[in-house]
Amino acid sequence: MDPGARMPRWLPRAVVMVLALFACFQLASWAFHQLIGLLVNILIAFFLALAVEPAVARMAARGVRRGLATFLVFLGVFVAGAGFVVMLGSMLAGQIIDMIASFPQYLDDVIGSINHTFGTELSRLAIQESLLHSDWLQKYVQNSATGVLDVSATVLGGLFKLLTITLFAFYFAADGPRLRRALCSVLPPAKQAEVLRAWEIAVAKTGGYLYSRALMALISGIAHYVLFELLGLSYAPALAVWVGLVSQFIPTIGTYLAGALPILIAFTENPWYALYVFGFVVVYQQFENYMLQPKLTSRSVDIHPAVAFGSVIAGTALLGAVGALIAIPAVATLQAFLGAYVKRYEVAHEGGSGADAAASPGSPRRARRRWRPGPR
């Protein structure tokens, strides 16, 4: 190396540029991780606004101010959700009260059975005294006091998150047209048409998913309510609402969670009732999968079951329970948008199989429907 050679003039500037870019990347990464919770809340609010958009637009078309229409829709959702929580809470509270009232008798029966089997002389009062004065109970009470504070903080955090999502969703729905105009104003005319088309597809798919699920939840709730009333189960209306909502709005495992609670309550009243409820849940699920759901979702969210299952798994891996809820409408929107622009060709005839013959150019084939956004 020549000792008299000088350092290139561009090298210090390049080093400074690389360091600046690295610092910007680190800053952006830190900001993204700090704001990931807010971004997820905004994403949930956006899909919630898309879900209520058809109802808000329909009311606005009839002369209702858009802000008032959005408020009325959200008020209806809130009233329905609060009613469900109250019904479910009353059912659980009644079951807990009954369990507490019958627990001493149940404990006496267990102690009597133990004394009869092993020849012991245990008594419930002696066991209660030993438990009340045990060190284990005192430590448990102290830990529970700390746990109450943690639970309170979690509840307050959940309420704040719910309020944040509701406010963003309200603004997105109430100012939907203004938001679209602001977004399209910075794009050329050709891109504006594509953005508006994608927006309409997202609204149609998300709203269709929500309303088809709500209709299936209503049908499922009515069917199970009839069964619960015929069996004479306690809290039949609350159980029917539980089955309808949980089975439809919790993907993949919702059916099992929905059927577990009424089966458990039926078992406490009569083991045969639990068997009847289990059989009805299985039969109704098959009816819903093969008869009801294809007819209700064929026009709104028509995606392959394997794609839906995979999208739920992917959404859960990315965003947890939130991702599982919004995965299906998101994938349906993407599928419809791609189907409107991706050009498809006929498969060339290769052999004599039935599938190839059906795909050959000379054979008739069903015309593919392309997405056409409806009138706004």
Rank of each mutant, 00 (worst) to 15 (best):
V331Y: 07
G320H: 11
Q335G: 11
T316L: 13
A336L: 03
T333P: 06
A327Q: 05
G310L: 11
T316V: 15
A332G: 04
V307P: 07
A321Y: 11
F309H: 09
A306Q: 05
T316S: 09
T333S: 10
L334E: 11
V312L: 06
A332E: 05
A324H: 12
P305Y: 05
A336H: 03
V331H: 00
L334V: 05
I313L: 15
P329D: 08
A336M: 01
S311L: 05
I326H: 01
A314I: 05
I328W: 00
S311W: 00
L318C: 15
A332I: 07
A332Q: 08
I326K: 03
A308I: 02
Q335T: 12
P329Y: 09
V331I: 11
A330I: 08
Q335N: 15
A314M: 09
L318R: 10
V312M: 09
F309L: 14
G310F: 07
A317T: 12
T316C: 11
F309W: 13
A327E: 03
A314F: 09
V312Q: 09
V307N: 07
G310V: 01
A324G: 15
H304N: 10
A314Y: 00
A317M: 14
P329M: 12
I313T: 09
A317H: 13
G320F: 13
Q335V: 14
H304T: 07
G310T: 01
V322T: 15
V312I: 13
I326C: 06
L325G: 08
Q335M: 15
L334F: 14
P305G: 00
G320W: 12
I328M: 05
A324W: 14
V322R: 14
G323Q: 07
A332R: 00
I313W: 12
G323F: 08
G310S: 10
